[in-house]
């Protein structure tokens, strides 16, 4: 029971981490909360669903298609809704409001075109279990957890080692000087949104398989926000750790305390961190940018 609960928690936590990573990336570069991230996750899930049900593709191709689809949607979202504000150096509040508008628009666009029905993914390996140290755990949960870890580790290497990755971190440090190194900021920000959208696509497919696909499924990103705050906004290892901690805590609370109290615990955790450690576990708070 304990191990099963832990694995379930880690798998949900892995999905939270995937969402938190995209959220954190955009926050660290553009300094605003991208509230449209949830809508991109939702659209990624619909892309995956279409590939799985209409084209009968396997999980690998569904994930790949959803990554590409959500990535492109995120880039278009930035081009259409944020780039002109960004170039005019608008305060980040304006970007946030624009993001909220996008979120409402995209959800209602799905209501108007696809409808409000709940859809389920076909069963890839949904019910299969593997036995691990005497407990039986879901193959999907284990797979989602491992895949989330690998994806975030890959992103960590990309940001740490590649020229584009270093440029992203340079942009986080000082956008203007980054452009004075010869970096085309429009292109760099497109890469950031492509990455964030790709991670949203993976999260959308996993969420859709685990639960269902519906227009407001993206609201679960408020959990990603909590995860990002716990780990420290803008920090990749923080997003991973925050997501896993939140997932495990939630699952244990649902299993051993009460599933009704789950969200009470999560939001209490958020408030506790904001009050006592606003820089999160891995954030480097208090450092001034001159």
């Amino acid at each position: 029971m304990f191990l099963q609960t832990l694995i379930t928690g880690l798998s949900i936590g892995g999905i939270y981490s995937l969402m938190a990573v995209g959220y954190s990336l955009v926050f660290s570069v553009l300094n605003f909360s991208n509230f449209a991230h949830g809508a991109v996750i939702m659209l990624g899930a619909y892309v995956g669903l279409a590939l799985a049900t209409k084209l009968n593709l396997g999980l690998g191709l569904v994930l790949a298609g959803s990554v590409a689809g959500a990535g492109i949607i995120a880039v278009l979202n930035e081009r259409l809704a944020y780039s002109s504000l960004r170039r005019r150096k608008a305060p980040s509040l304006y970007l946030m409001i624009s993001a909220m508008g996008c979120s409402v628009f995209l959800e209602n666009m799905v209501y108007a075109t696809i409808g409000s029905r709940f859809y389920a993914f076909p069963e890839f390996f949904g019910r299969q279990v593997i036995s691990l140290w005497g407990s039986s755990v879901s193959l999907l949960d284990t797979g989602a957890f491992v895949f989330s870890l690998l994806a975030i580790w890959g992103l960590h290497l990309f940001v740490g080692r590649t020229r584009t990755g270093i440029a992203i971190r340079a942009g986080v440090s000082d956008m203007t000087m980054c452009s004075l190194m010869g970096v085309d900021l429009d292109r760099l920000i497109a890469v950031v949104f492509l990455l964030a959208g790709g991670f949203a696509g993976v999260a959308g497919v996993f969420l859709g398989i685990k639960y269902l696909v519906y227009p407001t499924m993206g609201w679960v990103t408020n959990k990603a926000y909590i995860a990002a705050v716990i780990g420290g906004l803008g920090s990749l290892p923080g997003a991973l750790a925050g997501g896993l901690i939140l997932g495990v805590v939630e699952t244990f609370v649902s299993t051993y305390v009460s599933s009704v109290l789950r969200d009470v615990f999560s939001f209490t955790l958020l408030v506790a961190f904001l009050v006592m450690r606003p820089e999160g576990l891995f954030g480097r708070g208090g450092e001034e940018k001159v």
Partner: peptide, 18 residues
């Protein structure tokens, strides 16, 4: 206006970005 979170080496890499 160095990239203060980046290492010395990474700052030089950025200088040679193009």
């Amino acid at each position: 206006r160095l990239f203060s979170d980046l290492s010395v080496e990474e700052n030089l890499v950025m200088g040679a970005y193009l």
